[in-house]
């Protein structure tokens, strides 16, 4: 029973073609709770609510078994790049 991290990754990869994807199983083994970070071109021009809807519908089948899905990040590649650069430690002067 439950859904595996690999299943979630496979569905998201095939449907949203993400340039970055991180799926963490936070269920403690039962496969019912996941945290997701995803970067996809398909989020371009969509506000956060719509982006979450895109992810939810990509996981429509899995959602029947998943009880808690936390989408920590749903970014466009551009936003992701900016965030990465902002987080990069500045080279020592």
């Amino acid at each position: 029973m439950g859904v595996t991290k690999e299943q979630v990754e496979a569905s998201l990869t095939s449907k949203l073609n993400p340039s970055h994807l991180e799926v963490v199983d936070t269920s403690g083994g039962c496969g019912a709770s996941f945290v997701i970070e995803i970067v996809s071109q398909q989020f371009e021009g969509k506000r956060l609510l719509e982006r979450h809807r895109v992810v939810n519908s990509a996981l429509e089948e899995e959602m029947k078994e998943i009880h808690a899905l936390s989408i920590k990040k749903a970014l466009t590649p551009e936003q992701w790049k900016k965030q990465q650069e902002a987080e990069k430690p500045k080279p020592a002067a």
């Binding site: 956060l48 979450h52 809807r53 808690a68 899905l69 936390s70 920590k72």
Partner: peptide, 21 residues
Amino acid sequence: SSWPTFPQLYVEGEFFGGCDI
């Protein structure tokens, strides 16, 4: 709400989002 989980927040009759949002 076309939303698979709870909680669901509505503001002025419109779906605002779930917990993360």
